[in-house]
């Protein structure tokens, strides 16, 4: 099992560090899956995580100038590591202006992702900073838990309003209640509702648009055909989980959408040019 990568371009480095920071806001622990072409940050929707799931996909070629990996075997050419994204993020933040950054899987006292960076100096002597971030190697027998989640058979798919607006509203609602009801339909309308003994608040978004899920999508017929466009699908979620997702978003995505499975799950998808992030929030009764 081998992995080494090198990032020279400072823009790529910053971008990579932003992605890792976003992940660190979403979860304490996650799995980093390395394949010859991709890096994946994965959180499987287990009860221990409160049912929240995450899938973040990066093309290695968009970030790394050099990228070599050798999986557990030629048949299973992958590496699966359990990491604390906060630690990775902290290490990457300190090497923001490096001439290059090397990321390597090493065995020190325990398996580590070693981040070595050459920092600029005024003298001729170079300065290399090394961070060892401990990781756990995940045995092949457990890999099945970290496969790409299938897109749920949703009832409604809708584009999200500007994430900043959404964040403001959700932040305030969080002050007032622990649970939030999301409603949306295929007519581009979405409502966020809270209700407590003291107050009920409903925010109405309209003209959001519904993503076209074509015939070639995994949906059989898509959600829209048989459904009355006015008909609302709903899911009640823990506000903190939604807030966490919104807090992590540092850059405005090119596309952000929400897929609702009625009273079951909220599936949030954020697409950047070269990064895609999916986030699953389970509905509560």
């Amino acid at each position: 099992m081998k992995f080494r990568g090198k990032i020279i371009d400072i823009a790529c480095l910053n971008h990579f560090s932003r992605v890792v920071t976003t992940i660190s806001k979403l979860t304490k622990m996650c799995v980093l899956r390395l394949t010859p072409d991709n890096l994946f940050f994965v959180l499987s929707g287990k009860v221990a995580n409160g049912g929240v799931g995450m899938w973040c996909e990066l093309l290695q070629a968009n970030f790394f100038d050099e990228y070599q990996m050798e999986g557990v075997s030629s048949e299973f050419n992958e590496i699966c590591l359990e990491v604390t994204p906060e630690n990775l993020s902290r290490a990457l933040k300190t090497v923001q202006n490096a001439k290059y950054v090397k990321i390597k899987l090493t065995r020190k006292h325990c398996p580590c992702l070693t981040i070595a960076a050459e920092l600029p100096t005024l003298s001729s002597v170079s300065r290399v900073v090394t961070h060892d971030v401990p990781v756990d190697i995940i045995p092949k027998s457990l890999w099945h838990e970290f496969k790409e989640p299938s897109i749920p058979d949703f009832d409604v798919s809708i584009y999200l309003p500007p994430l900043k607006t959404l964040k403001n509203v959700v932040d305030r609602m969080k002050n007032l209640s622990n649970f939030l009801l999301i409603e949306a339909n295929m007519n581009g309308e979405m409502k966020l509702k809270i209700q407590t003994d003291l107050v009920s608040v409903t925010t109405h978004f309209k003209d959001l648009g519904n993503p076209p899920w074509g015939e070639d999508s995994s949906q059989d017929g898509g959600p829209s055909h048989s459904r009355d466009p006015e008909d609302m699908a709903e899911a009640r979620v823990d506000i903190r989980k939604l807030q966490q997702f919104l807090m992590g978003q540092q850059v405005n995505p090119s596309k952000a959408m929400c897929n609702l499975v009625h009273r079951n799950v909220v599936h949030l998808v954020v697409l950047h040019e070269d990064v895609s992030l999916q986030y699953f929030v389970p509905a509560v009764a």
Partner: peptide, 12 residues
Amino acid sequence: EEGGVVTVCKIN
């Protein structure tokens, strides 16, 4: 209302 988004609050 802000930017076309409307919120209705009923405070008991």
